[in-house]
C-alpha cells in the first residue's frame, strides 16, 4: 500500500514510523486518485478512469476522485472484506469458500474504459489484484471454480498457484496491451507491480529479513511504452516512474528523487525502517 501511495504521489509518503502510527488507511485516497499524479493529469483535462481491485474494504472508487469508476466483476454473493474474513474464522467458511471475490483483469479494464470514452484523453488506472492471492487461474488460464487463498496451500502449492497466476496475468496483460496499441498507437502504457513475491521468510523488523527476501520483495515489474520518449533502461526506484512519464508528456526533463526504500511489516508498520544502500542492494543483488 505504501509503495503504491508513493508511486501515485510521486514522493516518499512514509519515511518514519510516525508517518504510519495511526495505520495505513490515511493513504488510501492516494490510491483512489487524490494523488499528485492523478490531480495533475485531471488538471490537464484527463478523464480519470479508475478500476479498484475489489478485494479490500479500504480501497474502493471514490466518485469525487475518479470521473469513471470501473466496478470489478462478481459472479456470486458480494461480501465485504471484514465479513468474509470473520466468516472464514467460523464454520460459515464452508459457505463463503464457495463464493468468488470480485475480480478484474487488464482486458476487462481496457474494455470498460473504452466504453466510457469521451472527447477528453483518458488516464486509466487499473489495480489488478492478480497474481496476488487468492489465486484464481487454472492451468489453462480459465477462472477456478473457487479462488484459493494462499493460507489454504502449503509452500509448494502456494508457489505453483502464484506462478500460474503470473503466467495468466502476463498473458491477459499482453492481450490488453495489444488491443490498446492496435486501436491507439500513441497510447502511453505503464505496466508495473507494487512489490514482488514473498516466498523468502520475512519478519516484523528489518533485521529479520534475509537479503534474498529483501530483493525478492522489492524487485518490481517496470515496463513503460511512451512513444517519442527516451527512457533509461535502469530506472531505479518506482517513486520516479510517474515523474518520468509526466515529464515525457510535458516534454520536460524529469525532476527525480534519490533512490530510497523502506521495509515494514503489515502487522507492525511502526517497524518501518529505511533500507541502507537500497539502490546497490536491489539493482545488483549478490546471488
Amino acid at each position: 500500500m505504501l509503495s503504491l501511495s508513493s508511486l501515485f504521489e510521486m514522493d516518499y509518503v512514509a519515511t518514519a514510523p510516525a508517518d504510519v502510527s495511526d495505520g495505513l488507511l490515511r493513504y488510501r485516497s492516494l490510491l483512489e486518485g487524490d494523488s499528485q499524479f492523478v490531480r495533475a493529469m485531471r488538471a490537464q483535462g484527463y478523464q480519470h478512469v479508475y478500476a479498484h481491485p475489489g478485494a479490500f474494504d479500504w480501497l474502493g472508487c471514490d466518485p469525487t476522485l475518479a470521473d469513471v469508476c470501473i466496478e470489478p466483476r462478481t459472479d456470486s454473493l458480494r461480501l465485504s472484506e471484514v465479513d468474509r474474513t470473520i466468516a472464514e474464522m467460523t464454520p460459515l467458511q464452508l459457505l463463503t469458500s464457495q463464493t468468488l471475490l470480485p475480480y478484474t483483469d487488464p482486458v476487462y479494464v481496457a474494455d470498460q474504459a473504452r466504453q466510457a470514452r469521451t472527447d477528453a484523453p483518458q488516464l486509466v488506472v487499473g489495480h489488478i489484484l492478480s497474481p496476488h492471492g487468492p489465486y484464481r487461474y487454472t492451468d489453462s488460464c480459465a477462472l477456478r471454480e473457487t479462488f484459493v487463498e494462499a493460507a489454504a496451500l502449503d509452500a509448494d502449492g502456494r508457489k505453483a498457484a502464484y506462478l500460474q497466476d503470473v503466467i495468466c496475468t502476463d498473458a491477459l496483460t499482453l492481450q490488453a496491451v495489444r488491443s490498446i496499441v492496435l486501436r491507439d498507437p500513441d497510447a502511453v502504457i505503464v505496466v508495473l507491480s507494487d512489490h514482488g513475491s514473498n516466498f523468502e521468510i520475512e519478519g516484523p523488523t528489518q533485521a529479520a529479513w534475509t537479503e534474498a527476501g529483501i530483493v525478492e520483495r522489492f524487485g518490481v515489474l517496470d515496463a513503460v511504452r511512451a512513444p517519442g520518449c527516451d527512457l533509461p533502461e535502469e530506472r531505479g526506484v518506482l517513486v520516479n516512474l510517474l515523474r518520468r512519464v509526466q515529464a515525457c508528456l510535458d516534454g520536460t526533463e524529469p525532476d527525480l528523487l534519490p533512490d530510497r526504500a523502506f521495509t515494514w511489516w503489515e502487522e507492525n508498520p511502526l517497524g518501518l525502517e529505511e533500507l541502507p544502500d537500497a539502490a546497490a542492494r536491489l539493482q545488483h543483488p549478490q546471488r
Partner: peptide, 19 residues
C-alpha cells in the same frame, strides 16, 4: 488537451521482477 495521448497504468499486484 484533446491531442494528448491516453495513459494507461496497470498495476499487477505482487508480480515479481523477471530476474
Amino acid at each position: 488537451v484533446a491531442a494528448r495521448p491516453d495513459v494507461y497504468v496497470f498495476v499487477l499486484d505482487e508480480r515479481a521482477r523477471g530476474d
